[in-house]
Nucleic acid binder design. Structure first.
Lengths: 208, 208
DNA sequence: TAGATTGTTAATCGATTAACAATC
DNA sequence: TAGATTGTTAATCGATTAACAATC
């Protein structure tokens, strides 16, 4: 392995899936697995799994394979799940509310520390044990609490100004549910898009 | 162009984004655009855009570029947005409810025709103008209404049996919000996964 | 006609797969 | 030790980028 070389986005996108499968295997009581077996279960090639893992280190043992629990933990560590970062959520519509309640942030390397909405009538509502705050106090809140990432569950037209405000306040990543492309204008921050429309359209294309 | 050759998944995943950008440009009153201009706006190369589009046909004109409105429409047609397919949604938790209410199905090539949940107490509730039905009557409903795709907003452990039941009933595609991988076991059907956990983990990885 | 920009072919780059020596 | 399976290098495959002739 060569830890110094650049790791491709495709590899990174596969890591959570490895993590998920290994977690299941561990829960089912399996203690070791070969790249071949894992490949069969995941619909990949053994070569690819070995190449992927060797971007980060030699986690296996010749003649034996990989220790399921240890590899699961290693990948969790590579992803950074053991070091929580602070997240805020903006936009408490039916989507924002569902995301706030549905996502197991702690298991995914985050701690949700604040929820905001511009609508005055929502201020003070309790969502997942947090009081909804007005976006007017977001500046102050961020200066005090220094969130690392922001979850944008707001309409397209609000996304860019809010993102730019947050970038100025030190937010370095966005989980973006709005239909706005932030990265073209801000290649410096990390943006993970969840574009439902795009996703559903690709499904529409495939069903012919 | 050569319409007969296989079209890569990467191209297909870019189509909705082209569609989105062209829609915005059209709404802003722009009538023509060159591949160079579009590339700059989208953070791609002009070459890539021309290659992508030429998978489906020669939509531009030398010396002129592309007609925004016409190209937007063409891509919509390629995606199949003008031919609606029938969709059902299973699982009316806070996520399923949010998806049902939040997504503009009609704009994305679908018509939502049924909503199901196994929880008796939800039967009869109205979600987005549709009555929630019990999963017990799903078989009968599908035989009558022949849905093309199913949206799975159910827990991991319920996903595989429900998917297999629906495959038998002729469902050919899944928009899968459960943390279960359906395609490994069923490579014959189209599955578009929305794995929130995976998505958020890649963001966690990138913020270091 | 001259300028612009496509459609398309060729060159490059990167990712996946295959092969195999190292080694547990 | 023999068998198994890794880590890693080499070969293949596919996707992106560059170049340019065709043409509006």
């Amino acid at each position: 392995m060569d830890t110094s070389r650049h790791i491709s986005d495709l590899v990174i996108k596969r890591l959570p899936r490895y993590y998920r499968f290994l977690g299941e295997l561990r829960n089912s009581g399996m203690s070791r697995i070969s790249s071949r077996e894992l490949a069969d279960k995941m619909g990949l090639t053994a070569s690819q799994i070995r190449q992927d893992l060797n971007c980060f280190g030699g986690f296996g043992q010749q003649g034996y394979g990989y220790n399921v629990e240890q590899l699961h933990e290693e990948i969790g560590h590579i992803l950074g799940l053991d070091r929580k970062q602070k997240a805020i959520l903006i936009g408490v519509g039916n989507l924002g509310r569902a995301i706030a309640n549905h996502i197991r942030f702690e298991q995914l390397g985050f701690q949700l520390i604040g929820i905001f909405d511009k609508k005055e009538s929502l201020t003070g509502d309790i969502v997942r044990n947090l009081p909804v705050r007005n976006t007017a106090v977001m500046d102050e809140f961020c200066r005090e609490n220094l969130p690392d990432v922001a979850i944008l569950c707001i309409p397209k037209e609000d996304a860019m100004p809010i993102a730019e405000q947050l970038i100025k306040l030190g937010v370095r990543g966005f989980w973006n549910f709005s239909h706005e492309d932030i990265s073209v204008k801000h290649p410096d921050v990390s943006v993970e898009n969840v574009h439902f429309g795009d996703s559903l359209m690709t499904l529409r294309y495939r069903i012919k």
